[in-house]
Simulated scan of single mutants.
Amino acid sequence: MTGRGREIALHGGLVALLAVLAFVLPAYHHGNVARVMVLAVYAMGYNLAFGYTGLLSLGHAMFFAAGMYGMGLPAYHLGLGAGLSFVAGLAAAAGLALAVGVLALRTAGVAFMIVTLMFSQAAYLTILLFGTYTRGDEGLVLTRASRVLAGVDLSDPMARYVAALGLFAVALFFTLWLVRQPEGRVLVAIRENEERAELLGYNVFRHKLAAIVLSGTMSGAAGAAYGLLFGYVGASFAEVQYSIFPLLWVLLGGAGTVIGPFLGTLFMFYLIDLSADITSAYMLIAGLALVLLTLFAPQGLGGEIRRRWAGWLP
């Protein structure tokens, strides 16, 4: 089998496995895996900027929240349908990513990290400032009627799982396609040596801006889907921790791998979930696991699989 065939078989097999699990998982894990798939899309969006382009952002929560509130506010206040609300969320995230990218990419390195963090904090404070509409920390609870898409009630567990799987599959195969295109290879070249990429004639700023916009839009799609599928839109999703989470998921799963964000999200989600049943200091266990993985699998789970057994893994 060719390398391209193995890539499609692996990622298609993952989607097929998740589809089968929809019919065999207990109710608790059924909901958890649906949540993991949506959050993995967020991690995949972050991976485009960080793992493939080398842009370390500490403010991606603003894109996740932009998608969530861009979807939630029209649905809650205007009674907009689920489909149009989701599109509004995508547009909000893409517009914010474009505006932030144009400004933040005037900096680099540590300055870029700080600027993105400040933009994200400004977005969080804006949500609180307009609490009359956003309901601040209390958040918005979407009605069941506002979560119906093409006659399908997305509050139904199976419908929610299938919708999450559909979004995950689209994001997964889009990323797989993108990284094999010339545009994707240019992003990797920028990550490895930005000066050399510029000397070769590539417009580095334009490619980095495209990466930020794509990354922000995917993150926004995850935010919009999360609010739509689980019926809640809250300011907590714009806090700093939701900018740190995708970084951890990508590092754990393997930065610069297509399958890594899903592996990292799944691992961290269940590590915290299981640890919370044992002790209230569950983040201590999560931190210990992070340290061990950093020491013994510095390239993340997907990166180690690629290094040891599957060098063809994208």
Rank of each mutant, 00 (worst) to 15 (best):
G54H: 00
A286D: 00
V186P: 08
W249Q: 07
A75S: 15
A169C: 05
A197D: 03
G300I: 05
L129P: 02
Y124D: 01
Y69D: 03
A49W: 06
A108S: 15
V233T: 11
L200A: 13
A159P: 10
R185T: 10
R106H: 04
N32H: 11
L48M: 14
L301Y: 05
L103R: 09
S57W: 07
P314W: 10
L167Q: 09
W249R: 06
A66T: 05
M62T: 03
P182R: 12
A286S: 08
L98I: 04
L248F: 06
L149A: 12
L149R: 10
G54Q: 01
I127S: 02
G70V: 06
E183I: 13
A82H: 07
A9P: 10
Y42G: 09
G79D: 06
T294Q: 12
P314I: 07
I8G: 06
A297V: 05
R160Q: 13
L17S: 15
G231N: 08
L288A: 15
L178M: 13
M44V: 09
E239C: 06
F112G: 03
A16P: 01
V204L: 06
L228F: 04
I190Y: 09
D156N: 15
I8Y: 11
R306V: 10
Y76R: 04
A92S: 13
Q181P: 06
I305Q: 04
V188G: 00
V141L: 13
A221T: 08
V240C: 05
G254I: 02
L248Q: 09
S219C: 14
A225P: 04
I190V: 14
V179D: 02
G5T: 06
A108P: 02
G59T: 09
I259H: 06
F205R: 15
V38W: 08
P246M: 06
L73N: 12
S215M: 05
H77Y: 08
V148N: 14
F86G: 02
F173C: 00
L209H: 07
Y161E: 08
R135I: 00
L56K: 09
Y42P: 04
P182I: 12
G13C: 11
L128W: 07
A281E: 14
G79W: 10
G59N: 05
M62L: 02
V213H: 05
I278K: 09
L172K: 03
V38R: 08
G54P: 02
A66G: 05
M218S: 06
Y232Q: 04
R180D: 12
L252T: 14
F245K: 06
L125S: 03
E195T: 14
A122R: 00
T134S: 07
L288P: 07
A97K: 04
